[in-house]
Write a protein that binds this DNA or RNA. Structure first.
Length: 574
RNA sequence: CGGGGCGUAGCGUAGUGGCUAGCGCGCCUGCUUUGGGAGCAGGAGACCGGGAGUUCGAAUCUCCCCGCCCCGACCA
């Protein structure tokens, strides 16, 4: 039992000045967490109980799924990370330190290497597989910008699992087992979530899905079809287009277009010059990029911007992408800024990629690769060709769903889990092989699965809070019942103390507000802010043999007979 | 790393060159009060982020550094 009279807790009447997002603001105000440094937080008693409840749910679901819990240190030697090259690849996000002899160490940002080596050290036969192991461990990442309280910290707790299989079919099965375990876990945590397909990105795997908890302050943007349930990362959104089946347009025609460097000015010029009503969508934008130092042109309809993240995620093997700058134009004298078209790309030494909207046969108004000249009827397949189609244009709300063509919405969310099929990258690098039936060494294939444990606390807060405070699901709350003794008579406190014990004996966890020096109003406000789901008030109505029972989430109130109230409360809760 | 903002008591803040740095919340003592963040009286708590400088005089002006927040870049 927690007693408010002695609890290490000071609720704040005002919002902290450095907290903007609701979870951060309320967790600080309600006395759950305190900031120690940017992206580094301490948990106070109420907060730590809440955190531990989240951890417990996750651990139980992992255990139920048959995954085995292990534990690695946070402080790790350099060598394994050298073998996978991540000592270098991870860059400045890695916290590095030296011991007294000057040897390099790191604070683990993620533990693929250690898991792989652990299995390598113990197992050597296909008969030992499949295996799934996990840990709940503090991770350290020197984020460029920690933000949003405990949603994105530099020190945070993650549950990370890894599966080990002899072949792809085994990996697929392990992946599905984790996917199901995650669904159960997040349902128990009371989180609303969408599973979205994601790009594997820097981790170098294949299949990957993210668990996103929708919330307006989330930092991930994703695409959702409200009709069929399709959900995808913006990077993974697929453009739905119909093939061109119109007439072959007239021959390409170059026209004068002085002072027309932008799409808007081009639209105006064409409309007045030719007496037509085109829009930006009828023009072709040629965006020049440097992909790992190589000049490429990306074609998108003029009313769309190029989304560099999408291009980067969809151009296989490319590490770094950036826009052309002035000095880059200088290296390609044939490219006239504002008047670029795809017609002469081959001669100019530019590789051209097109957004799928630039279908073969479609005609466009675009630059003529000469100062003050544009061209119309520029037709894909006749007047220019492209090396490949690539998802390049920004995704907009209202774009058609790839499955059912319903206009999609764009929503924000917190990433609470990520599962992906890692493949053999780490096993290969660290030499994790097992012997197969034929006595031949096979490289093991791995899956990797993460849940942000501390982040989940914030995500639950974000999805459940209201204007008066936090509002936890029962399984997560720091206690199940918040018992308030409101009044001054000893009879009230005596009865409440007895009720608190009875509730605990009945198996409930109780936060007992037994403060003699706080007014009823203060206690009510605190109870609402702290957000325990059931509030029991022992106060003035005790004189008539009554107590009050409230439900935090709904605000509903009812009176119970004080005599034997614990049974009534238990009944109302279950 | 680019852009913007901020740093004054545990929290929220006032104070743009001039008395001993002010107020609210919280905290301590006493009295009163106790169903919606009570009242009165008294009190403790601040090297005004740090350093250097300008000045008779600096929380206030200048420079450097540090820290924090937001947008972007980046990010299992």
């Amino acid at each position: 039992m927690l007693r408010m009279s002695t609890l290490l807790l000071r609720t704040l009447r005002e919002d902290p000045a450095d907290a903007e997002v609701a979870s951060h603001r309320l967790l600080v105000r309600a006395g759950y967490v305190r900031r120690v440094a940017a992206g580094i937080y301490s948990w106070l008693p109420l907060g730590y109980r809440t955190y531990r409840n989240v951890e417990k749910v996750i651990r139980e679901e992992m255990d139920n799924a048959g995954f085995q819990e292990v534990h690695f240190p946070s402080l790790l030697p350099r060598e394994p990370y050298e073998e996978t090259n991540r000592w270098h690849e991870y860059g400045p996000d890695l916290f590095r330190l030296k011991d007294r002899r000057g040897n390099d160490y790191l604070l683990g940002p993620t533990h693929e290497e250690m898991f792989t080596l652990m299995v390598k050290g113990e197992f050597s036969s296909y008969k030992d597989l499949p295996l799934s192991i996990y840990q709940i461990q503090t991770k350290f990442r020197d984020e460029p910008r920690p933000r949003s309280g405990i949603i994105r910290g530099r020190e945070f707790v993650m549950k990370d699992s890894y599966s080990f299989d002899i072949d792809d079919a085994g990996l697929e099965a392990s992946y599905q087992r984790h996917r199901e375990a995650y669904i159960k876990t997040f349902n128990r945590l009371g989180l609303k979530f969408n599973i979205v397909s994601a790009m594997s990105g820097a981790m170098g795997g294949s299949k990957s899905e993210e668990f996103l908890a929708p919330c307006p302050t989330g930092e991930d943007t994703y695409v959702l079809c409200e009709k069929c349930g399709f959900a995808a990362n913006v990077e993974a959104m697929v453009t739905k287009v119909a093939p061109y089946n119109g007439e072959l347009p007239p021959a390409l025609e170059v026209f004068d277009s002085p002072n027309t460097p932008t799409i808007d000015s081009l639209v105006d010029l064409v409309n007045s010059k030719f007496g037509v009503t085109i829009t930006g969508a009828d023009t072709l934008k040629n965006v020049l990029l440097l992909a790992d130092g190589k000049a490429i042109s990306v074609l998108v309809p003029g009313d769309r911007e190029v989304d560099l993240k999408r291009v980067g995620a969809n151009l296989v093997g490319v590490q770094e992408i950036r826009l052309f700058e002035e000095e880059d134009f200088a290296k390609f004298p044939g490219l006239v800024k504002g008047y670029v078209g795809p017609q002469d790309a081959a001669e100019l030494g530019i590789t051209v990629y097109a957004d799928p909207r630039i279908v073969i046969g479609s005609q466009w108004i675009t630059g003529a690769n000469a100062r003050d000249k544009h061209a119309r009827y520029v037709t894909h397949g006749r007047d220019f060709t492209v090396t490949a189609f690539v998802e390049a244009a920004e995704v907009k709300a209202g774009d058609p769903c790839p499955n059912c063509e319903t206009p999609v919405v764009i929503d924000r969310a917190i990433e609470i889990g990520h599962i992906f099929q890692l493949g053999r990258k780490y096993a290969q690098a660290l030499g994790l092989t097992v012997l197969d039936q034929n006595g031949k060494a096979q490289v093991v294939t791995m899956g990797s699965y993460g849940i942000g444990v501390s982040r989940a606390v914030a995500a639950i807060a974000e999805q459940s809070y209201d204007e008066i405070g936090l509002n936890w699901p029962r399984e997560i709350a720091p206690a199940e019942v918040h018992l308030v003794a409101a009044g001054k008579e000893d009879a009230i406190f005596d009865y409440a103390a007895k009720l608190a014990i009875e509730l605990e004996l009945a198996g409930l966890t109780v936060l007992f507000d037994d403060r003699r020096d706080a007014s009823a109003g203060v206690k009510f406000k605190d109870a609402e802010l702290i957000g325990i789901p059931y509030i029991v008030i022992v106060g003035k109505s005790l004189a008539e043999g009554k107590i009050e029972f409230r439900v935090r989430a709904t605000g509903s109130k009812e009176e119970f007979v004080a005599e034997g109230a614990h049974a009534e409360i238990l009944n109302a809760i279950n």
